[in-house]
Design a protein around this nucleic acid. Sequence first.
DNA 1: CCATCACTTGGCAATATAGCCAAGTTTCGG
DNA 2: CCGAAACTTGGCTATATTGCCAAGTGATGG
Lengths: 93, 93
Amino acid sequence: MEARAKVMKALGHPSRLFIVDELSFGERCVCELTEMIGADISTVSKHLTLLKKAGIVLDDRRGQQVFYRLRVPCILNFFGCIEAVVKETGGGE
Amino acid sequence: MEARAKVMKALGHPSRLFIVDELSFGERCVCELTEMIGADISTVSKHLTLLKKAGIVLDDRRGQQVFYRLRVPCILNFFGCIEAVVKETGGGE
DNA sequence: CCATCACTTGGCAATATAGCCAAGTTTCGG
DNA sequence: CCGAAACTTGGCTATATTGCCAAGTGATGG
């Protein structure tokens, strides 16, 4: 459970969830994600490191840039269910 | 993303993940879950409150006991994917 | 080489979580 | 009513997370 919780925890942050969603469209470099998220690049880098340690993404350095991509596409199936949960709670709360 | 992350975050704890797994077999009262988890009942109650606020479980008082059950069964589909992630990382790390 | 771009890592302060004990609430049994 | 069982909530400390800035690393262009 410990290991499983770690994976879920990695997804329990708006920016990281955004990253996973964005990577579903293809790989992105840190600078692209940083621009989209609007936080410091060091912050985004740390989020990516965490996702990588959780086994969710893979990194690939090409030249000066580091590209990230999803390692486990099945994560994307989560979104439908999450959406259902959020809708049931009325989004409010 | 904020709302979605909240749901994922609720699942990002070993005890809570255990609870969700256990509830997949049917409803359980707080005392049963407490015994299985081996923590203080107040701690378990707080975990359940959090899961409830996240929209993942429902509670139902019957007499002196409060029974909890899954509100969104599709959560159970997560386990297969999570397992795949954990296995890929070698369980280690 | 050297400056620069693209990152990562270290360090730190602010905030959030976790879990225990104690106290309060609800529901019964007698 | 009274006490006990089953929970929930408050309070508090220990620990973990976040996110910024600053400093360090790696690859490139000139």
